[in-house]
Computed example of a mutant assay.
Amino acid sequence: MIRRALVTGGAGFIGSHVADRLLEHGYEVEIIDDLSSGRRENVPEGACFHHADIASPDAARLVREGRFDVLCHLAAQIDVRKSVNDPAADARINILGTLNLLEAIRAGGHGTRVVFSSTGGAIYGDFVPIPSVEDMPKDPESPYGIAKLAVELYLAYYGRVHGLETVALRYSNVYGPRQDPHGEAGVVAIFCNRLLKGEPLTVYGDGRQTRDYVFAGDVARANVAAASVSLPAARQVDVRAYNIGTGLETSVLDLAATLQRAAGTSVPVDHTTPRAGELPRSAVDNSKAERELGWRPEMALEDGLRMTYDYFARRARGMAA
């Protein structure tokens, strides 16, 4: 029997990769996206597209009546700075929008599994060892991180009280083709665009701050694994949560150098004022995902950066044509 999947945010950067992978695995895929940041061209051929807001009655009706086997929930407000400037708007999308979907699943009674895209960078905060492990204390430093943690707590509640199958995937810094070069989440895409224009790369502070860069295709594989694997019994919030990253720290300076090497080009690196509140280090331990999901990252950073740069180069040539 063909399994059915609904991908929220499926016209976006990561969501479209998840939809691609589900289709490759034989799923019948439908997508919800309001196109506020997603692109219609990212929706893969073979997926059924619904232009809708996840907080809307239309989205709830689709979830309630769609008899989906899995809901991969990636639709979100993802800009940390926007969450700081307007935490209520962030909560309306990231918390209330998710609750709209969860209540629809509960009302539908089909047993749809929820695979939620959470964050490994923003959820743990400054006070835990690196690489972070799932059961470490959480002290998010932004409304965005707080909202992601709140949704995870709701997922644990729905699992324990209502019997829903829920999984939280805590991503490190995701990069790859289709990444948005605008906003704070797209440093690799921003660097690619600057390299293509021959412009200097701007680095905040000394550039020694580290991140754990994981390729979008590997993240998509994690979603497919989480869609069907046997889950532990619903208990505390961390029991069904999995870090999805490489466990490796890469400084912004090293990222810039590796990307220039992958691109076969060189531009100056300009340093500017550090950003307030930026984490000095971030990386996640992925051993639980390897043990329980059978997942591990496959893409080496330099190879993934080369693929990403090639994508932006092809896109730039297409726009110039």
Score class of each variant (00 low, 15 high):
residue 114 V to P: 12
residue 210 T to L: 02
residue 181 P to I: 15
residue 134 E to C: 07
residue 19 A to S: 12
residue 205 G to Y: 05
residue 174 V to T: 14
residue 145 G to H: 02
residue 21 R to L: 12
residue 44 P to M: 03
residue 203 V to M: 04
residue 33 D to R: 02
residue 63 V to I: 12
residue 251 S to L: 03
residue 272 T to K: 01
residue 166 T to S: 00
residue 227 A to W: 02
residue 168 A to V: 04
residue 85 N to W: 10
residue 15 G to A: 04
residue 128 V to Q: 11
residue 101 L to T: 06
residue 88 A to W: 14
residue 160 R to E: 00
residue 101 L to V: 07
residue 132 S to C: 15
residue 227 A to N: 06
residue 74 L to Q: 09
residue 149 L to Y: 09
residue 55 A to V: 09
residue 24 E to V: 14
residue 81 R to C: 08
residue 209 Q to G: 12
residue 93 I to Y: 03
residue 201 L to P: 09
residue 244 I to L: 06
residue 118 S to Y: 03
residue 250 T to Q: 04
residue 30 E to T: 08
residue 291 R to M: 05
residue 272 T to F: 08
residue 47 A to C: 15
residue 307 M to H: 12
residue 120 G to N: 06
residue 109 G to Q: 03
residue 177 P to I: 05
residue 29 V to T: 13
residue 294 G to S: 09
residue 180 D to I: 14
residue 21 R to Q: 10
residue 206 D to Y: 04
residue 55 A to G: 10
residue 94 N to G: 02
residue 256 A to P: 06
residue 94 N to M: 00
residue 297 P to Y: 14
residue 98 T to Y: 06
residue 200 P to L: 07
residue 17 H to W: 14
residue 179 Q to T: 01
residue 127 F to G: 10
residue 264 G to E: 09
residue 89 A to G: 08
residue 317 R to G: 15
residue 82 K to P: 02
residue 49 F to Q: 02
residue 249 E to P: 15
residue 119 T to G: 09
residue 11 A to N: 11
residue 180 D to E: 10
residue 222 A to C: 07
residue 154 Y to T: 04
residue 261 R to L: 11
residue 202 T to L: 15
residue 23 L to Y: 04
residue 304 G to V: 02
residue 30 E to V: 03
residue 282 S to D: 11
residue 138 K to A: 08
residue 122 A to T: 14
residue 88 A to L: 14
residue 159 G to W: 00
residue 117 S to E: 11
residue 245 G to S: 08
residue 97 G to A: 08
residue 131 P to C: 03
residue 11 A to S: 14
residue 299 M to L: 02
residue 5 A to S: 04
residue 111 G to Q: 01
residue 4 R to I: 09
residue 305 L to W: 05
residue 261 R to P: 13
residue 211 R to M: 05
residue 231 L to Y: 02
residue 12 G to M: 03
residue 161 V to N: 01
